[in-house]
Design a protein around this nucleic acid. Structure first.
Lengths: 151, 151
DNA sequence: TTTTTAAACTAGAATAATTCTAATCTATTG
DNA sequence: CAATAGATTAGAATTATTCTAGTTTAAAAA
Protein backbone atom coordinates (compact mmCIF):
# COMPACT_ATOMS: atom_id res chain seq x y z
CA UNK A 1 0.00 0.00 0.00
CA UNK A 2 1.21 3.51 -0.89
CA UNK A 3 2.84 5.56 1.84
CA UNK A 4 3.35 9.30 1.96
CA UNK A 5 5.67 11.50 3.90
CA UNK A 6 4.18 14.34 5.87
CA UNK A 7 6.03 17.55 5.16
CA UNK A 8 5.95 20.79 7.02
CA UNK A 9 6.75 19.40 10.43
CA UNK A 10 9.99 20.28 12.16
CA UNK A 11 11.65 16.91 12.08
CA UNK A 12 10.34 15.33 8.91
CA UNK A 13 8.30 12.45 10.07
CA UNK A 14 7.59 8.76 9.67
CA UNK A 15 5.64 7.51 6.70
CA UNK A 16 1.88 7.38 7.09
CA UNK A 17 -0.89 5.54 5.44
CA UNK A 18 -2.11 7.56 2.45
CA UNK A 19 -5.75 6.66 2.99
CA UNK A 20 -5.59 7.83 6.59
CA UNK A 21 -4.03 11.09 5.50
CA UNK A 22 -6.75 11.59 2.91
CA UNK A 23 -9.43 10.80 5.45
CA UNK A 24 -8.20 13.50 7.79
CA UNK A 25 -7.82 16.06 5.01
CA UNK A 26 -11.34 15.38 3.73
CA UNK A 27 -12.65 15.87 7.24
CA UNK A 28 -10.90 19.23 7.40
CA UNK A 29 -8.65 18.01 10.20
CA UNK A 30 -4.99 18.88 10.14
CA UNK A 31 -2.91 15.73 9.96
CA UNK A 32 -1.01 16.32 13.16
CA UNK A 33 1.39 13.85 14.66
CA UNK A 34 -1.14 12.94 17.34
CA UNK A 35 -4.09 12.47 15.01
CA UNK A 36 -2.00 10.37 12.69
CA UNK A 37 -0.85 8.14 15.52
CA UNK A 38 -4.40 7.68 16.76
CA UNK A 39 -5.80 7.16 13.29
CA UNK A 40 -3.17 4.53 12.58
CA UNK A 41 -4.19 2.58 15.69
CA UNK A 42 -7.87 2.98 14.91
CA UNK A 43 -7.97 2.30 11.22
CA UNK A 44 -4.86 0.50 9.99
CA UNK A 45 -4.94 -3.23 9.76
CA UNK A 46 -8.36 -3.70 11.29
CA UNK A 47 -10.46 -4.90 8.38
CA UNK A 48 -13.31 -5.91 10.65
CA UNK A 49 -13.38 -2.73 12.65
CA UNK A 50 -12.78 -2.22 16.30
CA UNK A 51 -14.48 -0.96 19.44
CA UNK A 52 -12.27 1.08 21.72
CA UNK A 53 -12.62 3.23 24.82
CA UNK A 54 -10.76 6.50 25.29
CA UNK A 55 -8.64 5.08 28.10
CA UNK A 56 -7.76 1.96 26.13
CA UNK A 57 -6.72 3.98 23.10
CA UNK A 58 -4.69 6.28 25.31
CA UNK A 59 -2.89 3.23 26.65
CA UNK A 60 -2.20 1.92 23.17
CA UNK A 61 -0.91 5.15 21.75
CA UNK A 62 1.52 5.65 24.60
CA UNK A 63 2.59 2.02 24.46
CA UNK A 64 3.33 2.69 20.79
CA UNK A 65 5.72 5.41 21.91
CA UNK A 66 3.75 8.47 20.78
CA UNK A 67 3.42 11.42 23.11
CA UNK A 68 -0.30 12.15 23.18
CA UNK A 69 -2.28 13.48 26.11
CA UNK A 70 -5.54 12.01 27.33
CA UNK A 71 -7.30 15.28 26.52
CA UNK A 72 -6.17 14.95 22.93
CA UNK A 73 -7.43 11.39 22.78
CA UNK A 74 -10.86 12.61 23.85
CA UNK A 75 -10.75 15.60 21.50
CA UNK A 76 -9.69 13.43 18.62
CA UNK A 77 -12.26 10.73 19.23
CA UNK A 78 -14.99 13.35 19.25
CA UNK A 79 -13.66 15.11 16.17
CA UNK A 80 -13.43 11.81 14.31
CA UNK A 81 -16.96 11.04 15.41
CA UNK A 82 -18.24 14.41 14.24
CA UNK A 83 -16.47 13.83 10.94
CA UNK A 84 -18.19 10.49 10.49
CA UNK A 85 -14.99 8.47 10.88
CA UNK A 86 -16.18 6.89 14.12
CA UNK A 87 -19.44 6.12 15.85
CA UNK A 88 -19.90 6.48 19.58
CA UNK A 89 -21.85 3.85 21.43
CA UNK A 90 -22.64 2.82 24.97
CA UNK A 91 -23.18 -0.80 25.89
CA UNK A 92 -22.45 -0.46 29.58
CA UNK A 93 -23.34 2.55 31.64
CA UNK A 94 -20.28 4.54 32.61
CA UNK A 95 -18.14 4.48 29.50
CA UNK A 96 -18.38 5.17 25.81
CA UNK A 97 -16.93 3.02 23.09
CA UNK A 98 -15.90 4.27 19.69
CA UNK A 99 -16.61 2.03 16.76
CA UNK A 100 -14.49 2.25 13.63
CA UNK A 101 -17.26 0.65 11.65
CA UNK A 102 -19.46 3.55 10.58
CA UNK A 103 -21.55 1.51 8.18
CA UNK A 104 -25.12 0.66 9.09
CA UNK A 105 -24.85 -2.15 11.58
CA UNK A 106 -25.89 -3.41 14.99
CA UNK A 107 -24.29 -5.16 17.94
CA UNK A 108 -24.14 -8.44 19.74
CA UNK A 109 -22.94 -7.98 23.29
CA UNK A 110 -21.67 -10.87 25.39
CA UNK A 111 -22.32 -9.66 28.92
CA UNK A 112 -20.05 -12.23 30.53
CA UNK A 113 -16.94 -11.67 28.46
CA UNK A 114 -17.57 -8.07 27.47
CA UNK A 115 -17.06 -9.12 23.85
CA UNK A 116 -18.86 -6.98 21.29
CA UNK A 117 -19.54 -8.11 17.72
CA UNK A 118 -20.92 -6.25 14.75
CA UNK A 119 -23.96 -7.46 12.85
CA UNK A 120 -24.48 -6.02 9.39
CA UNK A 121 -27.72 -4.07 9.19
CA UNK A 122 -28.55 -5.41 5.75
CA UNK A 123 -28.86 -8.90 7.22
CA UNK A 124 -31.54 -7.57 9.53
CA UNK A 125 -35.05 -6.35 8.99
CA UNK A 126 -37.03 -4.44 11.59
CA UNK A 127 -40.77 -4.26 11.01
CA UNK A 128 -43.44 -2.35 12.86
CA UNK A 129 -41.51 0.70 13.96
CA UNK A 130 -43.84 3.67 14.40
CA UNK A 131 -43.96 6.13 11.52
CA UNK A 132 -41.32 8.81 11.71
CA UNK A 133 -43.08 11.99 12.86
CA UNK A 134 -43.39 14.87 10.38
CA UNK A 135 -40.39 17.15 10.42
CA UNK A 136 -38.22 14.45 11.92
CA UNK A 137 -35.90 11.91 10.37
CA UNK A 138 -34.24 8.77 11.66
CA UNK A 139 -30.69 9.67 12.62
CA UNK A 140 -29.85 6.09 13.39
CA UNK A 141 -31.22 2.87 14.79
CA UNK A 142 -29.23 1.08 17.45
CA UNK A 143 -29.90 -2.55 18.15
CA UNK A 144 -28.00 -4.24 20.94
CA UNK A 145 -28.61 -7.93 21.51
CA UNK A 146 -27.39 -8.75 25.00
CA UNK A 147 -26.34 -12.34 25.51
CA UNK A 148 -25.43 -14.17 28.68
CA UNK A 149 -24.44 -17.69 29.60
CA UNK A 150 -27.55 -19.81 29.73
CA UNK A 151 -28.58 -20.43 33.35
CA UNK B 1 -57.79 2.25 45.80
CA UNK B 2 -56.91 0.32 48.97
CA UNK B 3 -54.36 1.84 51.32
CA UNK B 4 -52.44 0.25 54.16
CA UNK B 5 -50.75 1.68 57.17
CA UNK B 6 -47.16 0.73 57.80
CA UNK B 7 -46.69 -0.37 61.38
CA UNK B 8 -43.53 -0.84 63.30
CA UNK B 9 -42.11 2.61 62.74
CA UNK B 10 -41.71 4.98 65.63
CA UNK B 11 -44.25 7.56 64.60
CA UNK B 12 -46.91 5.58 62.83
CA UNK B 13 -46.76 6.69 59.29
CA UNK B 14 -48.69 7.93 56.26
CA UNK B 15 -50.81 5.61 54.21
CA UNK B 16 -49.10 3.88 51.30
CA UNK B 17 -50.24 2.27 48.13
CA UNK B 18 -50.96 -1.40 48.79
CA UNK B 19 -49.61 -2.56 45.45
CA UNK B 20 -46.33 -0.75 46.04
CA UNK B 21 -46.02 -2.31 49.46
CA UNK B 22 -46.67 -5.75 48.01
CA UNK B 23 -44.12 -5.17 45.28
CA UNK B 24 -41.40 -4.36 47.78
CA UNK B 25 -42.28 -7.30 50.00
CA UNK B 26 -42.23 -9.70 47.05
CA UNK B 27 -38.81 -8.42 46.13
CA UNK B 28 -37.60 -9.10 49.67
CA UNK B 29 -37.02 -5.41 50.26
CA UNK B 30 -38.07 -3.88 53.56
CA UNK B 31 -40.63 -1.20 52.97
CA UNK B 32 -38.66 1.60 54.52
CA UNK B 33 -39.81 5.19 54.51
CA UNK B 34 -37.29 6.03 51.81
CA UNK B 35 -38.11 3.13 49.53
CA UNK B 36 -41.80 3.84 49.85
CA UNK B 37 -41.32 7.50 48.99
CA UNK B 38 -39.22 6.58 45.95
CA UNK B 39 -41.56 3.81 44.85
CA UNK B 40 -44.52 6.18 45.10
CA UNK B 41 -42.82 8.65 42.78
CA UNK B 42 -41.74 5.93 40.40
CA UNK B 43 -44.83 3.79 40.18
CA UNK B 44 -47.93 5.62 41.40
CA UNK B 45 -50.06 7.41 38.87
CA UNK B 46 -47.81 6.79 35.89
CA UNK B 47 -49.84 4.36 33.79
CA UNK B 48 -47.52 4.79 30.80
CA UNK B 49 -44.32 4.41 32.73
CA UNK B 50 -41.54 6.86 33.17
CA UNK B 51 -37.85 7.34 32.50
CA UNK B 52 -35.93 8.98 35.29
CA UNK B 53 -32.33 9.69 36.21
CA UNK B 54 -30.96 9.31 39.72
CA UNK B 55 -30.44 13.05 40.11
CA UNK B 56 -33.92 13.87 38.86
CA UNK B 57 -35.53 11.39 41.21
CA UNK B 58 -33.44 12.76 44.06
CA UNK B 59 -34.77 16.21 43.25
CA UNK B 60 -38.35 14.98 43.18
CA UNK B 61 -38.19 13.08 46.41
CA UNK B 62 -36.75 16.02 48.29
CA UNK B 63 -39.21 18.40 46.69
CA UNK B 64 -41.90 16.06 47.99
CA UNK B 65 -40.55 16.67 51.47
CA UNK B 66 -39.00 13.27 52.18
CA UNK B 67 -35.54 13.07 53.68
CA UNK B 68 -33.63 10.71 51.41
CA UNK B 69 -29.94 10.86 50.57
CA UNK B 70 -28.54 10.64 47.09
CA UNK B 71 -26.71 7.45 48.05
CA UNK B 72 -30.03 5.89 48.96
CA UNK B 73 -31.54 6.95 45.66
CA UNK B 74 -28.73 5.14 43.84
CA UNK B 75 -28.95 2.11 46.12
CA UNK B 76 -32.69 1.92 45.71
CA UNK B 77 -32.65 2.32 41.94
CA UNK B 78 -30.17 -0.53 41.68
CA UNK B 79 -32.08 -2.74 44.11
CA UNK B 80 -35.31 -2.10 42.22
CA UNK B 81 -33.51 -2.90 39.00
CA UNK B 82 -32.10 -6.14 40.41
CA UNK B 83 -35.57 -7.03 41.62
CA UNK B 84 -37.01 -6.51 38.15
CA UNK B 85 -39.04 -3.47 39.12
CA UNK B 86 -36.97 -1.18 36.91
CA UNK B 87 -34.81 -1.41 33.84
CA UNK B 88 -31.64 0.59 33.41
CA UNK B 89 -30.90 2.13 30.05
CA UNK B 90 -28.49 4.57 28.49
CA UNK B 91 -29.54 6.76 25.60
CA UNK B 92 -26.91 9.44 26.06
CA UNK B 93 -23.39 8.72 27.20
CA UNK B 94 -22.78 9.94 30.72
CA UNK B 95 -25.97 9.10 32.54
CA UNK B 96 -28.27 6.19 33.15
CA UNK B 97 -32.03 6.33 33.03
CA UNK B 98 -34.31 4.00 34.91
CA UNK B 99 -37.43 2.85 33.14
CA UNK B 100 -40.50 1.84 35.13
CA UNK B 101 -41.73 -0.14 32.16
CA UNK B 102 -40.12 -3.56 32.57
CA UNK B 103 -42.19 -5.19 29.85
CA UNK B 104 -40.56 -6.09 26.56
CA UNK B 105 -40.29 -2.83 24.68
CA UNK B 106 -38.02 -0.49 22.78
CA UNK B 107 -37.39 3.24 22.57
CA UNK B 108 -37.87 6.22 20.35
CA UNK B 109 -35.44 8.96 21.26
CA UNK B 110 -35.92 12.55 20.11
CA UNK B 111 -32.39 13.88 20.13
CA UNK B 112 -33.44 17.52 19.97
CA UNK B 113 -35.91 17.54 22.85
CA UNK B 114 -34.47 14.67 24.85
CA UNK B 115 -37.93 13.10 24.84
CA UNK B 116 -37.99 9.32 25.12
CA UNK B 117 -40.98 7.19 24.17
CA UNK B 118 -41.68 3.51 24.63
CA UNK B 119 -42.57 1.27 21.73
CA UNK B 120 -44.17 -2.05 22.58
CA UNK B 121 -42.00 -4.95 21.47
CA UNK B 122 -44.97 -6.95 20.24
CA UNK B 123 -45.62 -4.31 17.59
CA UNK B 124 -42.14 -4.92 16.28
CA UNK B 125 -40.53 -7.79 14.49
CA UNK B 126 -36.80 -8.16 14.07
CA UNK B 127 -35.68 -10.64 11.44
CA UNK B 128 -32.22 -11.87 10.54
CA UNK B 129 -30.50 -11.70 13.90
CA UNK B 130 -27.66 -14.21 14.07
CA UNK B 131 -28.41 -17.47 15.84
CA UNK B 132 -27.86 -17.35 19.58
CA UNK B 133 -24.61 -19.22 20.26
CA UNK B 134 -24.75 -22.52 22.12
CA UNK B 135 -24.67 -22.09 25.85
CA UNK B 136 -25.87 -18.51 25.60
CA UNK B 137 -29.29 -16.95 25.79
CA UNK B 138 -30.67 -13.56 24.86
CA UNK B 139 -30.86 -11.51 28.03
CA UNK B 140 -32.57 -8.65 26.23
CA UNK B 141 -32.70 -6.78 22.98
CA UNK B 142 -32.47 -3.01 23.06
CA UNK B 143 -33.64 -1.02 20.09
CA UNK B 144 -33.21 2.74 20.18
CA UNK B 145 -34.52 4.71 17.21
CA UNK B 146 -32.84 8.09 17.28
CA UNK B 147 -34.78 10.89 15.64
CA UNK B 148 -33.75 14.40 14.86
CA UNK B 149 -35.33 17.41 13.18
CA UNK B 150 -35.15 16.95 9.45
CA UNK B 151 -32.38 19.05 7.95
C1' DT C 1 -44.04 -3.85 74.72
C1' DT C 2 -39.12 -3.86 74.97
C1' DT C 3 -34.90 -5.72 73.30
C1' DT C 4 -32.00 -7.33 69.80
C1' DT C 5 -30.09 -7.42 65.46
C1' DA C 6 -29.49 -7.44 60.65
C1' DA C 7 -30.59 -4.46 57.21
C1' DA C 8 -30.90 0.12 55.59
C1' DC C 9 -29.66 4.94 55.71
C1' DT C 10 -26.56 8.83 55.70
C1' DA C 11 -22.92 12.53 54.94
C1' DG C 12 -19.17 13.04 53.01
C1' DA C 13 -14.99 11.15 50.93
C1' DA C 14 -13.40 8.66 47.02
C1' DT C 15 -13.32 7.20 42.26
C1' DA C 16 -14.00 7.16 37.29
C1' DA C 17 -14.96 9.23 33.07
C1' DT C 18 -14.95 13.23 30.85
C1' DT C 19 -14.51 18.22 30.03
C1' DC C 20 -12.44 22.62 30.71
C1' DT C 21 -8.74 26.22 31.03
C1' DA C 22 -5.20 28.85 29.73
C1' DA C 23 -0.59 28.46 28.33
C1' DT C 24 2.38 26.53 24.75
C1' DC C 25 3.24 24.58 20.29
C1' DT C 26 2.83 23.69 15.24
C1' DA C 27 0.82 23.10 10.50
C1' DT C 28 -0.46 26.00 7.11
C1' DT C 29 -0.61 30.44 4.66
C1' DG C 30 1.26 34.65 2.98
C1' DC D 1 10.57 32.46 7.24
C1' DA D 2 6.97 35.01 9.93
C1' DA D 3 2.35 35.25 11.24
C1' DT D 4 -1.63 33.03 12.78
C1' DA D 5 -5.36 29.97 13.42
C1' DG D 6 -5.78 25.72 14.99
C1' DA D 7 -4.04 21.93 17.94
C1' DT D 8 -1.93 20.11 22.04
C1' DT D 9 -1.05 19.87 26.85
C1' DA D 10 -0.96 19.37 32.08
C1' DG D 11 -3.57 19.77 35.43
C1' DA D 12 -7.75 21.55 37.54
C1' DA D 13 -12.67 21.11 37.43
C1' DT D 14 -16.96 18.81 36.73
C1' DT D 15 -20.25 15.10 36.65
C1' DA D 16 -22.03 10.75 37.66
C1' DT D 17 -21.53 7.23 40.60
C1' DT D 18 -19.71 4.28 44.37
C1' DC D 19 -17.70 3.57 48.79
C1' DT D 20 -16.98 4.01 53.92
C1' DA D 21 -18.01 3.67 58.38
C1' DG D 22 -20.96 5.45 61.76
C1' DT D 23 -26.06 5.93 62.88
C1' DT D 24 -30.82 4.66 62.52
C1' DT D 25 -34.68 1.52 61.95
C1' DA D 26 -37.81 -2.44 60.63
C1' DA D 27 -38.63 -6.92 61.92
C1' DA D 28 -38.05 -10.73 64.93
C1' DA D 29 -37.46 -12.48 69.52
C1' DA D 30 -38.35 -12.27 74.21
Amino acid sequence: MAKHVVSGSKRTVRAVNAATLARLREAGLRPTRQRLALAALLFDGHPHGRHVSAEALFGEVRAAGAKVSLATVYNTLHQFTAAGLLRELVVDPGTSLFDTNVGDHHHLYFEDSGDLRDVDADRIEIKGLPATPKGAEVARVDVIVRLRRRS
